[in-house]
């Protein structure tokens, strides 16, 4: 669908978007207009949440618009008090192929958990 707004060349399917002006303007579109917007990842902090949580992704032409799209797509039901967005291609992720060397070694090291302490009742968020 994105082509209709940014690259709507010849009388596409949607009269409202590509109609109105005909033919002559297409030359202006030939240079450097991207057909689709880059992907962003969205992180929202809930009202009682302590940290931002990944909630999904969206497409946007720039960072500011991505933030607004995130507000419109992911906080419609009164969920959030803070939003982070970042370009998906700025995220470096671990690979499933590396799962064993990455994560298996911690599987038997129970002593890394602070389970040998009594946590007082009035210490929150533990």
């Amino acid at each position: 669908m994105s082509g209709e707004l940014t690259g709507g060349t010849s009388g596409g399917t949607s009269g409202e978007l590509s109609g109105g002006t005909s033919g002559g303007a297409t030359g202006a579109l030939s240079g450097g207009v991207r057909a689709s917007w880059p992907l962003y990842e969205v992180f929202v902090r809930g009202k009682r949440g302590l940290n931002h949580v990944h909630v999904g992704s969206l497409r946007a032409p720039d960072d500011e618009t991505a933030l607004r799209h995130a507000r419109d797509l992911y906080t419609r039901r009164n969920e959030g008090v803070s939003i982070w967005v970042t370009r998906s291609d700025h995220i470096t992720a671990s690979s499933p192929d590396e799962k064993d060397p990455f994560f298996a070694p911690s599987g038997d090291k129970v002593y890394r958990h602070p389970t040998f302490y009594e946590i007082p009742d009035d210490v929150p968020h533990m």
Partner: peptide, 14 residues
């Protein structure tokens, strides 16, 4: 169903 992008459609509906 007519907006140029899905994201804009939701924004306009909001």
């Amino acid at each position: 169903t007519r907006a140029p992008e899905l994201e804009e459609e939701v924004a306009l509906a909001n």
